[in-house]
């Protein structure tokens, strides 16, 4: 088909585009709504994760404190800074991404891939190592800080050997499920961005 045909069809769509135009107030309202972009979805997910985790752990700490179960109360308080650390990853990621979409397309996609790769590396390090280690250390500190409390002693006596086997098992489970979760949540988006960049850079 001739190029002229394509261009004339393309131009003829202007009428349809005109009919789609909303009033400026509608457009401004739309512009203030929440974003559905992949990267913004990742940012929102990371933000919500940090908040929910901190709230849950904070609530558990209070609950255990009120029940006088010091071992877990101390553990929960210990783990909160770990979640705050994860929020810092998220915040830095947002700051770096802020003006990326105004660059040339290849530069922009390249920056998205690089920033997302760095972010994922930090998230993986945090989830695979810091978090399980944080749980184990928190439990240990909790148990050692108040061994005289009756409830704490009972827990230690009851779980005893189970703790030695259970803690590595819990750490493994945290690692395993986090790995699956990260792959499900970010993997396909990251893969799509990488593929796009490869397509753009081909033949350069």
């Amino acid at each position: 088909m001739s190029e002229l045909d394509l261009n004339s069809i393309w131009e003829s769509d202007r009428d349809k585009a005109n009919s789609h135009y909303q009033s400026l107030s509608d457009v401004e309202k739309m512009a203030k709504q929440k974003s559905e972009n992949i990267l913004n979805k990742i940012r929102r997910t990371a933000f919500v994760e940090s908040i929910i985790s901190t709230v849950i752990v904070g609530a558990l700490a209070v609950a255990f404190y009120l029940k006088d179960v010091w071992v877990f109360a101390v553990f929960m308080v210990f783990i909160i800074p770990v979640f705050i650390l994860s929020y810092r990853f998220y915040r830095n990621y947002i700051r770096n991404l802020y003006d990326v979409n105004q660059r040339k397309v290849t530069e922009s996609i390249s920056a998205y891939v690089r920033l997302t790769k760095n972010y994922l590396r930090k998230v993986k390090f945090y989830n695979y190592y810091v978090l399980p280690l944080g749980y184990i250390t928190g439990l240990a500190i909790g148990a050692l800080s108040n061994p005289d409390i009756e409830a704490t002693r009972e827990i230690i006596e009851r779980v005893g050997l189970g703790l030695a086997i259970g803690v590595p098992l819990v750490a493994f489970m945290i690692w395993f499920f986090n790995k699956k979760y990260i792959k499900w949540l970010y993997g396909r988006h990251y893969k799509a961005l990488k593929q796009l960049l490869e397509d753009l850079q081909r033949d350069e």
Binding site: N37, I38, N101, Q102, R103
Partner: peptide
Amino acid sequence: NFRSEAKLSTWIYRVALNTALTFN
């Protein structure tokens, strides 16, 4: 953040295409 370093039309195409390319 538009700095007039690029033409406005170029800037619009960049922002719009970057958005479309990362829309999923």
